[in-house]
């Protein structure tokens, strides 16, 4: 579903796109589709193939592993990148805790998207580093 006009302004405030100019934001926004999920709806399903890379525009989502809630995601956060990058099924469910509006890119397009936009790739790597740091802290 093509994105609504307000998406460019919304994503301009997200850290993932902090380095982009206006025309670049416009181009990037139109590469994504827009999706909406009702409260309680699953977006990613643990163990089911064919997922994508999602960026939250509005609302919150829960990360659920083996039916146990683990963490909450909010506007500007993204999910699904691990299964896209590794070509594997998601290791958790992502469930809409409120009505949830997202941008989505199919897994098959993520590599081309990131290599074409190295600044977004760098910002995504920073995000992954933060996740790794938090996980390490939690484990220790």
């Amino acid at each position: 579903m093509a994105v609504r006009d307000d998406v460019v302004n919304t994503i301009a405030a997200f850290s993932l796109f902090a380095d982009l100019t206006g025309p670049q934001l416009e181009e990037v926004a139109h590469l994504f589709d827009e999706s909406f999920f009702g409260q309680g709806e699953r977006i990613l399903r643990q163990g089911v193939t064919g997922s994508g890379f999602y960026i939250i525009l509005e609302g919150t989502a829960g990360i659920r592993v083996d039916n146990v809630d683990r963490s909450v995601l909010k506007a500007g956060d993204y999910f699904g990148e691990i299964s896209c990058l590794l070509g594997e099924v998601p290791v958790s469910d992502i469930v809409a805790e409120t009505p949830l509006r997202c941008l989505v890119l199919p897994a098959t397009q993520l590599e081309g998207f990131l290599t074409k936009h190295p600044r977004i790739m760098y910002r995504l790597l920073q995000g992954e580093a933060r996740k790794l740091k938090n996980t390490t802290k939690w484990l220790s």
Partner: peptide
Amino acid sequence: VKTFGQSRLPAQTPFWESAT
């Protein structure tokens, strides 16, 4: 009735009921 996307489509459940 909540809508989304450029076409202002209504958000729906799997059985095509308004999600809201």
